[in-house]
Design a protein around this nucleic acid. Structure first.
Lengths: 340, 340
DNA sequence: CTGTTAGCGCGTTCAT
DNA sequence: ATGAACGCGCTAACAG
């Protein structure tokens, strides 16, 4: 494995000149640069990442903090990870996966203090999140995919849950629905202050109220069975429901089964819009779901770009980005059945 | 950020003594060790990962090479990633994600020569895989989740596709089915020499032949629509089919739709067994799928453990591990309909 | 525009 | 059982 001094010797220059040529940190005459790069080529030289990091105090490694949530990882999270990995590579960074089992302050301290990573991207952020508090306190660079309640000045990208719910409900209303329900994630997720659960709930209530409609909603664990039961309960209380907004991919099959068991068909007798869903999951249902899909690729990319910008001291045009989901019309929502 | 010499000074010992105490590389009197660890504690000292790596020539970082396959990433891949991340952490390693867009030798060279990672875990291995060839040639430590055709001496963990198919078919036969079809992944995946596609195909043909039954099979892109069409084509040619083994999660909904459109119901009129499937996907179908599920958590863990063992020069009891899928009976396969 | 040199924080071989 | 000193490969002053 050739080192920089090998290259320097072969090119007949000082070691530092090679360094400067490599980093462009200082002007080098075209001619010597030629020689240097030629030498690197001939020797098959690759800069040593660790040595570079040690000397420059910048590892060019960032970490993705991704806990394993109660509801299980889904396509959406997977896409965050892959797009973040690609984005990091494009920015010249390496991405390490830090799968913290829970919100553990000690592990975070370890991570940030061992000098391995320049910054971290936090996923699955709660409204009140110890990890965020700790990172701020340590003044450790980070960005969030998601957001906490007080996120002033913290670079983040998150779904615009309000807008997403507004659009989903508007779409259903436009189809004539007025009795619309909302199926959220689990009660415990909500209680834990998990952003998506809290924000969509609030948004749904707000939008229904503004429309002077009664909005009924329910929590539901991330499992088909739970979806089945939740739907039954919801309809027992509100038999006039004709449509449901669901933010719970794993519960959807149960809901659909419950609908079928009533002898109804989708979307003729009942409409469903899945929100904050992945295209993959939506397309796996029969009929395929009309869904508000998160722009996962953009979000993953932005998560790392916001962090990198911060690390490189570039101007932050804006610290927070909110992206509404994109409504993709498929086959699970239709005009309200005319019952009279 | 305190360094080792800070600790040494505070403990009243030499810097090297701190190092030895930390690594246990050499006997230290209990008393001075006490002092040293106390000093570390008081100062909040954490060893600097890069410096340690530079000096020891071992970064304690490994990479997970995970390409984005044509068929899209699924739950199975996601679980490999998360379990690998956890396993790495348990072994005291960091896991970097290297999402190579394609099988690119240059990027691999870059990765391996920049001294950042001690070894790599390769996913989505093809029978003939340039990445594997390159790694061998560079004598760079690696392990595989999956395997290539000549994998003598290369640590790997893979699904026992043969056994998996044998069990799935046996299960169907036991239910009385004799006309059994197989729905594989796409033709192009097969042609590219992607292990799972090739090995299950061979296994299916072998097992059917051994049972003196006609085995009909078909390739299918990873999309519901493709599944729908493939099922139609399969039944047009072989109207007597009563059961199908499918290794194509994303095509399943289409197949089920096609079955429903014939007025058939699952499993009364037609049986399905999904192989090399994830529990998550199986449970999302209606009815939930009887499926042979890959032991993803074990595989991810073994992938890193095999690599780490190699890196630490530990004895390899066996270089290759083959894990059959676990058949989980749910609701998509039943006794053959009695037509006479 | 280029060269010289002092670290970055730690592992490890010598001595003692 | 402990210390001193060198080097890992590179960056970034400082000095021309």
């Amino acid at each position: 494995m050739p080192t920089m001094s090998d290259v320097a010797r072969r090119a007949g220059v000082a070691l530092s000149t090679v360094s400067y040529a490599l980093n462009g940190t200082r002007p080098i005459s075209a001619e010597t640069r030629e020689r240097i790069f030629a030498a690197m080529e001939e020797l098959g030289y690759k800069p040593h990442a660790l040595a570079r990091g040690l000397a420059s105090k910048r590892s060019r490694i960032i970490a993705l903090l991704f806990p394993t949530p109660e509801r299980g990882l889904g396509f959406t999270e997977l896409e965050f990870v892959t797009s973040a990995a690609n984005a990091a590579r494009n920015c010249g960074y390496n991405l390490v996966l830090w799968s913290s089992e829970i919100h553990n302050p000690d592990e975070m301290r370890q991570l940030t203090q061992q000098g391995l990573v320049d910054g971290v991207i936090v996923m699955e952020v709660r409204l009140e999140d110890d990890r965020i508090r700790l990172l701020r306190e340590l003044e450790f660079p980070f960005s969030m995919i998601g957001r906490c309640s007080d996120c002033d000045g913290i670079p983040h990208v998150d779904i615009d849950f309000h807008e997403t719910v507004v659009e989903a409900v508007a779409y259903l209303m436009q189809l004539g629905h007025t009795r619309i329900g909302f199926l959220n994630q689990s009660q415990s997720t909500y209680t834990a202050g998990y952003g998506p659960a809290v924000r969509t709930q609030a948004a749904f209530e707000a939008v229904m109220q503004r429309a002077k409609l009664q909005g009924v909603s329910r929590f539901c664990r991330a499992a088909p069975k739970a979806g089945y039961e939740a739907f039954g309960a919801l309809l027992a209380e509100h038999p006039d429901l004709t449509a449901l907004v669901i933010m719970n991919e794993r519960a959807v099959p149960g809901v659909m089964q419950a609908i079928a068991d009533r002898g109804w068909s989708i979307p003729d007798d009942f409409s469903i819009v899945s929100v904050v869903s992945s295209a993959a999951a939506a397309e796996m249902m029969i009929p395929p779901l009309t869904a508000a899909e998160a722009m996962t690729a953009e979000m993953g990319r932005l998560g790392v770009e916001l962090l990198v910008r911060q690390l490189e001291g570039q101007p932050q045009d804006e610290s927070g980005v909110l992206l509404p989901c994109k409504l993709v019309v498929r086959g699970s929502a239709g005009p309200r059945r005319q019952t009279y």
